Simulated scan of single mutants.
Amino acid sequence: MKLENRRQKVVPFPHFLVRLGRYGLFAFGLILISVSLGTIGYHHFGKISWLDSFHMACMILTGMGPVVEMTTPTAKIFSSLYALYSGVAFLSITAVFFTPIIHRLLHILHVEQTEDEN
């Protein structure tokens, strides 16, 4: 997923949409992995149903907070570690998703013009 440098021209809009789709799919994959990790962990350590585990993992990953109180020490440790992971993962996934958009905006502003275009 290489981006062009400032000496290269801005890619055409259809190519940009393909790039945006690739980055979006990658971000979606990271979300699936993160939610799956949390769902399995909450089900195993927290001894809660699959649906409640999924709900809890989604709420923690998006920063909304816990839904079910963890009662065992191992569940509390997992919940704490998953919350720390989720904070970093949420910001990283957001950055991955917005990378092509921000790059395109900055690239349009900083493209060097050749003498023919002046």
Rank of each mutant, 00 (worst) to 15 (best):
T71E: 15
G38E: 03
I108W: 10
F98I: 11
M64H: 08
T62F: 12
P12C: 06
P100I: 00
T74K: 11
T99K: 10
I102T: 05
V111K: 13
M1W: 04
E69T: 14
T62Y: 10
E4D: 13
I31L: 14
P66E: 13
F45L: 12
F13H: 11
H44D: 13
L17D: 09
A83S: 13
G46Y: 02
G65I: 07
H43C: 07
V35W: 04
I101S: 10
G87L: 09
M59G: 06
A75G: 12
L32V: 12
V11Y: 03
L81F: 10
I102W: 01
L37T: 14
A83I: 00
F45H: 11
L32W: 03
S34C: 05
C58V: 07
G21S: 14
R22V: 12
S92V: 13
G65M: 07
H44Y: 15
L91H: 09
F16W: 06
S86H: 03
V96D: 02
L81N: 11
S34D: 04
L51I: 14
F45S: 05
L17Y: 07
K47L: 14
H44Q: 14
V68M: 14
L61V: 00
D116E: 15
H110T: 13
I102D: 01
K47Y: 12
A75M: 06
I93D: 02
I31T: 11
P100L: 00
G87Y: 06
T62H: 08
F98K: 02
V11H: 03
L81Q: 11
F45T: 05
M56C: 03
T39E: 05
S36G: 15
I101C: 07
K2V: 02
H55Q: 06
D52M: 09
L106I: 07
K47S: 14
T94M: 13
R19P: 03
T72K: 10
I31E: 10
K47V: 12
H55A: 10
R6S: 09
I101D: 06
G65N: 08
V10Q: 07
L25G: 14
I60P: 01
Y85H: 10
T71M: 04
L30P: 01
G65R: 04
E115M: 13
L3N: 09
L105D: 05
P12R: 07
L25T: 10
F90A: 07
V10C: 09
G21L: 13
A95Y: 12
M64F: 14
